[in-house]
Design a protein around this nucleic acid. Structure first.
Lengths: 211, 211, 211, 211
DNA sequence: GATGAATGAGTATTCATTCAT
DNA sequence: CATGAATGAATACTCATTCAT
């Protein structure tokens, strides 16, 4: 009993793509169902037909963005056999422009902002970080086992590196992504590496740099 | 011979405070003139009377927030005479919860987000960072002159530390500000210190941590 | 298998009729979407649904008025076979009260006025005169061919007669449409006829009436 | 007892001039007290202070316009001694561009339009025509006494000529004031003259131009 | 004489949504 | 599956006006 073509998933995907574009180009306040429908050449009520409400549609958008990130992330790193080179490649990626360009920053921050007043969005947005954190944590774990970086809480290390990259991206949206941005990126990468180096100890370290 | 009270500055301040509150409690989309006026017990057109448009009011809000930050920043640090202790205090402040609470994070991110589609907001928002960056840079400069941290570009160091704190704050809005948050804070502080320590060199450092 | 009714043309027509009435009864300044919708027992946003903006609606109104004129104009004149009688009937119509009553004068002048600051309205309003001018010109042409009026530029003659009728209508809105109005109408008709009479020559005529 | 400078009449005049300009440049709907005050560099409530309401101010504007016309009209005609030449000069003036430019047409029609829904405006607007009609009537009377134009109702003749000039002006706002406009002006002047010529008789004239 | 504060009604338009088709 | 009709609440903003100073 062949069911009639199930256009739903395709249409939904299509709608989310247009939502993304309108949100990117027009901003949160102007990203209305009418605008999105207009950009698709379709009637606004069709969007409701598929998502039942704008809020549901927004939730789906956050998931869609998480997917975009995971698509861009997985795979290519594993191809590098040498662990040192792999770590270097990962850090280069995280602390460079390329990384943040997989999803438009304004869309990313729109979703982040919406999380402040909507818990469901917040929790789905949070899921985005799972995409980064888990593989990163595993990577760090194996590097520790190989004795290439010092023993420490791998999850904490992943969190710290993520915080650094987020800080770089965020600050980049303020100061631009020119030479200054790249300079900061280098420093952050260096700082991250020093955390992994033997002898470093976040909790024990005294402030007095020289005595 | 008191001249007739010039209520404008007082009223404007008052309006911005209510704008801030409504924005914090209701979010961007619901922070309408009507809501703000309602929370003041005043007619919406009065806000227009003082700010002529919502956009102007929003610009003023960004300036207001910059002020909030600068009020919270200046002063107390200078009272610490010992440079090492002063650096420690500054870093403790930057990498802790307290710091980010001077301005509500959702309001801060609302303004940040608005900058994506409004250049005037963007440039005023950017000014917020001047409040942090310049004093921080001067602090680093004097520490270098005292030979307490290694010689490097003080502006770049300030930028890097700021990026770290922003990353911590941002990530904190996602994962919460519990133990994990504090752990990351410690690591970041440690990482920042290692950048300042003798022998560190961002650009020259090799990735291979151990060979 | 009647397809779902296309209510758009009917609704649009209906809206324009109400627009016309409100404009006539209340005047330009009070002819708001709310008033018009109110007079229809319908929600204001429905008018936007059909016309997308008040300006578009106003443009449609001008067209609607042009239609009203053309409906009232075409037809009945042709039924008069005798050319002399036909001319007389046309002039009687043009220089009488009846003529100007097909469209309310205040609505007519509202549209005319709006043309001063809106070129699109101006050009559509202009189109109203095509409705009169072309048939009038043709009429004059055929009368010339029949040798019943003197040879001259038929278009110029039509323009001149139209100017006279417009002057009568306009002045009528000032002095009222009583006996004085009718007296002027007779004089104008007579003046128009004299232009068509043998021997008259607009450009060559000397002012000196008697010497 | 020297009274304090009575600025009222000067201020009122000044306000009306600005009202006129704003009305000319922006149109009825946008000619708000705020705009007018803004163009004067003055607070809106000052206009109310002098005129007590916008409606009163509008009435004053109509009077102001009547004055503009009468200023432009009186005087120079009397200097022409030869009655035939004087008549010619008057008609040339009435049926030419120059005449209608003493008051901006859009302002004139704004006032005219407002008369449709405001009797006080209507009656004051009507007064404008007294400015033309009375001198014109007197002129015609004296020409009749001199036997230079045929005996008829001088008031009716004045009305008819005025209707013609109004028709020309009105139609000119629609078709522009180029060659076509000037052609119509010539025809109307000629038609007016034919009404004054011996043998013409508005009421008695048969339509049949040639028999 | 002139300003500024404040109001409240009113403006066109946008928005998400429902329902019938 | 998709559209169009219709709604009603909400939006920023304009307007004329009043009142106190």
């Amino acid at each position: 009993m062949a069911r009639p073509k199930d256009k739903a998933p395709i249409r939904k995907q299509e709608i989310l793509e247009h939502f993304y574009k309108v949100l990117r180009d027009e901003g949160l306040e102007r990203a209305s169902l009418a605008k999105i429908a207009g950009s698709m050449g379709v009637h606004p009520s069709l969007l409701i037909h598929y998502f039942s409400s704008k809020e549901q549609m927004t939730l789906a958008l956050v998931d869609y963005i998480a997917e975009l990130y995971s698509e861009s992330y997985i795979g290519w790193v594993q191809e590098i056999a040498d662990p040192n080179k792999r770590l270097d490649a990962i850090l280069d990626m995280l602390f460079s422009r390329d990384w943040m360009e997989h999803v438009d920053q304004s869309v990313f921050h729109a979703c982040h902002y919406l999380g402040f007043h909507n818990d469901e969005i917040k929790s789905r947005f949070k899921a985005i970080y799972g995409v980064f954190r888990e593989p990163l944590k595993e990577e760090f774990k194996s590097l520790m086992e190989l004795g290439l970086i010092r023993e420490m809480d791998a999850g904490l290390l992943a969190d710290t590196v993520i915080a650094m990259t987020e800080g770089l991206d965020f600050y980049g949206t303020v100061i631009g992504t020119g030479g200054r941005f790249r300079g900061i990126g280098k420093e952050l990468k260096s700082a991250a590496l020093s955390l992994m180096a033997e002898g470093a100890s976040g909790s024990g370290r005294e402030t007095g740099v020289k005595k």
